[in-house]
Design a binder for these strands. Structure first.
Length: 410
DNA sequence: CCTCCACAGGAAGCGCAGGAGT
DNA sequence: ACTCCTGCGCTTCCTGTGGAGG
């Protein structure tokens, strides 16, 4: 079969009208069911347009409840106004320390500055002089703010900076999806960050359904999506507590699947297989971007789970999947073996525990403190995704790495 | 009850990379 | 070219912690 021309590819039939609408980065002009919240954010930030310092703000709510979207929406509205307000959006998952956040602010403020490798004090000075000389009202948006390691230091630095500024100011908007997170904050930063706080409630199932309908209407060509498919998508998302982002992914994937199969309609079938695809996509993405040793730990866990599965089936024959709990110690031993196999120097047990915590944070494993029946205090580990899939993904990753190494050596 | 086991997780410190100042 | 800093990943050491076993 001859390869197709680009125009042939571009003219392939598709169910999408505007795929962008379904992207998680898309900021719609109007967010349904968030009018109250948006108004409140606008009121909160309005002083910046009158050349006054807006108060800090703290927003929290579960993932996919429109927090980031609402803030971005307000910021873009604010850009239409002429003012000295400047905003800087920072995702703290990537910029997860005081140093990196300030470095990022500098980069936004002074794009041609190559700020790599400066000391913290230097970066801070650069930021301050720029804000003050431009008499700017800086609004720093810290998304996923709970990811910052030295958050107390960061908040202290940024709030205290205002004491040194006269014509200008810094305002912080913190966004977090951990509701309990507020309690973990130091007293000082709590009172400064929570000058103005808001909660985004999860979308209710009927709201979810409206959102999906609305997006589907603009994202897809008319009459593509079955009504029952929308219901199903809403039901799947609803059971996983009102996460709109997940719903959009689901729609996107369902559309792609329909295109691939040359189907002109999106039905329950597409939505159902989209759900599976999205699930393994999420896992694959999370796993393959993991640092080497965390992958090795995960591989060790997967190995042991598979081994145990075989043994219980051979010996007892009882279908006790419940026994897939692993204890921390045996996992570490297996991890050492695996590391040797891939010729990676193994990390210490202390650091291995830190890896476990990271893996748990990502939802790839779950751990429980040992209770009665167990000797001593340890952690019981269970894998979050099917062990065989995890094993495949990681082994594939490492075989790629190995072959790259061989190329280098050759 | 005490001791020991099998860990958890904090604290300190080390070597390294890479930029600034000289 | 050199020394000084700073952040980062990591190791070493250490102090809990909670059930098992004597």
């Amino acid at each position: 079969m001859p390869s197709p021309s680009f125009s042939e590819i571009l003219n392939r039939p598709t169910v999408f009208a505007d795929k962008n609408v379904l992207s998680p980065h898309y900021v719609p002009d109007t967010l349904p069911f968030r009018d109250k919240e948006i108004t409140k954010i606008m009121e909160g930030l309005s002083p910046a347009l009158k050349n006054e310092r807006p108060r800090n703000m703290f927003i929290y709510g579960k993932t996919g409840t429109g927090k980031t979207c609402s803030v971005k929406n307000v910021i873009s509205k604010m850009g239409e106004h002429k003012s000295t307000a400047v905003s800087c959006y920072i995702n703290c998952r990537m910029y997860n320390s005081r140093y990196r956040v300030i470095q990022k602010i500098d980069k936004e403020l002074l794009p041609n500055l190559d700020s790599m490798g400066f000391g913290l004090a230097m970066l801070y000075e650069k930021m301050m002089t720029d804000i003050e000389s431009g008499a700017k009202r800086l609004i720093v948006i810290l998304d996923e703010v709970d990811m910052v390691k030295d958050l107390d230091d960061l908040l202290y630095t940024l709030t205290r900076a205002n004491d040194e500024l006269s014509k200008s100011s810094i305002t912080i908007i913190g966004i977090s999806n951990k509701v309990s997170f507020k309690d973990q904050l130091g007293q000082r930063s709590k009172s400064s960050l929570c000058e103005n706080e808001m909660v985004f409630a999860p979308y209710t199932p009927p709201q979810m359904q409206k959102i999906i309908e609305q997006r589907a209407k603009i994202g897809f060509k008319p009459h593509v999506v079955d009504e029952s498919a929308i219901n199903l998508a809403a039901a799947i998302t609803g059971s996983d507590v009102g996460d709109a982002r997940y719903a959009l992914k689901l729609l996107m994937k369902a559309g792609e699947l329909a295109d691939e199969q040359g189907s002109k309609k999106i039905t329950d079938k597409e939505v159902e297989s989209a759900r599976k695809a999205v699930e393994s996509d999420v896992a694959f993405e999370a796993i393959s971007t993991l640092p080497d040793h965390q992958q090795l730990v995960l591989l060790a866990i997967a190995n042991l789970v598979l081994d145990k599965g075989k043994n219980t089936r051979l010996t007892s024959g009882s279908p006790e999947e419940d026994d897939s709990f692993l204890v921390s110690g045996e996992v570490y031993e297996e991890y050492c073996k695996v590391s040797r196999h891939y010729r990676k120097p193994r990390r210490s047990a202390r650091w291995y525990r830190e890896y476990l915590n990271d893996l748990e944070m990502l939802g790839l494993i779950t751990t429980v403190e040992s209770g009665a029946g167990m000797r001593g205090r340890t952690r019981l580990i269970r894998i979050g995704y099917p062990a065989s899939d995890v094993k495949k993904i990681i082994e594939k990753n490492f075989s790629i790495i190995e072959s790259k190494d061989e190329e280098k050596h050759a």
